[in-house]
Write a protein that binds this DNA or RNA. Structure first.
Lengths: 179, 179
DNA sequence: TCTTCCATGTAAGAGGTTACATGATTGA
DNA sequence: TCAATCATGTAACCTCTTACATGGAAGA
């Protein structure tokens, strides 16, 4: 999903500024399945405005810099609906951790144990921060997505906890057997 | 993880040609946590050769085009080990499905049910294809990673199965309440 | 006083993908 | 006969990130 569509979709949930969109993808329910930087969001919003998919109004604020609040137009809604009619592309799960595990086995097997332990810590932290985002006033889909995220983190955590001893024992064995 | 490091790591598991590397990331155990196209793999291998991280020998084959088989050099191994010493970056889970769910709620709630059902089918298919890759002669880490993938797919599947009714009921309700 | 938050934007560059070009062989 | 598999490579293009520029207000 490109940044254009991401902006369109977020604006379908409510008006927002570029800064707010960035915060949503960096910290909100969006954070664990999407990403975008200012350097892509601001230009995307400008272009979407030029093309008539969104409108922009300036809001001067008390003791704060001015904001540009964007709203979806009807044309923008149609474009988004068209996008959603298509089947979503497959998930892209890029994991340096899993790659590192595979490679470490070949080149520095001692590292494997550390990698797994650090990863278990990570999951603990992430589960807590996702659960902290759960609020009473969320939309059903937001809650569903967040809880999906929590479920995934917990599944990964428990897989690692239940299989790490096995993995380490096997790596140690095959290491010794090869000598 | 950039394509350079990916190539270095795969070559640490054994010699391979560019074509074989591509197949591994597209179909093998790597497929669900990494990706790369020929257009990035071939130039990366050329550059790695120029820089002395890998060596290349041409292999003529019977009734098949020639192959260029790459091997990791000592320098390449050191570079890879250095990379692995660093903590792996966080996973990047980009999901058009989850985004579509959130956006569909706002703009075309009828689509939500279809999205979830199609997704459940997808998981079924993917679980079977991952399990088909499990073989007896895999290295411990390869097996661990593949089974991790299966565990994740199963967790996602069962989350969707257990919560879809809930989600649909809530969306229908809030839709009616708003009218 | 220093850092963080608010807020918007640009330019350069990194890092990829897609489409093309080529061509023999094998299986349906 | 037609598609798929094996096999390597290039060039154009696209998208996004990083780093920079600016500056006031609030909190520690």
């Amino acid at each position: 999903m490109d940044v254009r569509t991401l902006c369109l979709g977020i604006l379908a949930l409510g008006d927002a500024s570029g800064y707010e969109i960035k915060k949503m993808v960096a910290e909100g329910s969006f954070s664990f399945f999407s990403e975008a930087s200012y350097g892509s969001i601001y230009p995307a919003l400008t272009k979407l405005t030029d093309e008539g998919f969104v409108t922009c109004r300036a809001m001067s604020q008390n003791k704060r810099p001015d904001k540009k609040v964007y709203s979806l137009t009807e044309k923008g809604q149609r474009a988004l609906t068209d996008q959603l009619r298509k089947a979503p592309g497959p998930d892209k799960n890029r994991s340096e951790f899993l790659a590192a595990l595979l490679f470490a086995e070949a080149v520095s097997p001692d590292r494997v144990s550390d990698l797994v332990n650090e990863r278990i810590e990570d999951h603990d932290t992430r589960i807590r921060s996702l659960e902290a985002l759960l609020a009473d006033d969320m939309s059903p889909a937001s809650r569903f997505v967040l809880e999906y995220g929590v479920a995934m983190q917990k599944a990964a955590l428990s897989y690692l906890q239940n299989h790490q001893d096995d993995l380490l024992a096997q790596i140690t064995n095959s290491g010794e057997a090869a000598e």
